[in-house]
Amino acid sequence: MKSKWLFLTIAPCDAAEPWQLGFQDATTPMMQGIIDLHHDIFFFLILILVFVSRILVCALWHFHYKKNPIPQRIVHGTAIEILRTIFPSIILMFIAIPSFALLYSMDEVVVDPAITIKAIGHQWYQTYEYSDYNSSDEQSLTFDSYTIPEDDLELGQSRLLEVDNRVPVPAKSHIRIIVTPADVPHSWDVPSLGVKCDVVPGRLNQISILVQQEEVYYGQWSEICGTNHAFTPIVVEAVPSKDYGSRVSNQLIPQTTGEASAKMKE
């Protein structure tokens, strides 16, 4: 009985849910910032909406051939015109300042990251490279991440959101993700991490994130991809940083795709 309702606490955390209207839960400071900014702006937005619709409805209501046979004939009013120019620009400023602050802080890489993950997009799978521990050009910790086809899904897995090899990242440490595709451009997007970065051939784009909770986060390639491209999911699994080392060395170095996917079931 209890486990029946457990999905209420777990399911909405990271992946999209049916008929979802709000954000997915934030797990990076960046996403928290985005959500906060959204709420801040909505305060002004609703204020303006109510104010404007009140004026509009009033005007319509009172413009009536019986109640007001002779309407007001104001064509000019200096005071009101100055007011309605200055006041909205102040509101815009209140919106712009936090917005730009957030925008530029997202680009900024202030601290040295703890690990670098390279996400290399292919049509239609993702290759991840962990090369921080290499001592030569050849031996790279590389694995592919494919979508699990609909027929192979197990109970509880999300359609078109599960992959066979998840991306393990350490929680509570700064991570640099370098994205680049091998063939076509697309966009690397994980909503819970507050990340959406265009992936352009011949170019390395950097994302820096700090995952705060140990969970599994789902995302998809989006925007500029070709056919079927947008159905390629990204699954980021944040593990405690003390477990990360063993996770990487045990699970990824002796890489066998079939076994790993079985283990991924968790």
Binding site: Y133, P170, C197, R203, L204, G245, V248, S249, I253
Partner: peptide, 22 residues
């Protein structure tokens, strides 16, 4: 490679390249 102990360390942030484009 043998031991599970992996030190979390990578190329530091370089202030010659402060942008997203790396």
């Amino acid at each position: 490679e043998e031991t599970p102990e992996i030190k979390l360390e990578t190329a530091p942030a370089d202030f010659r390249f402060p942008t997203t484009n790396q």
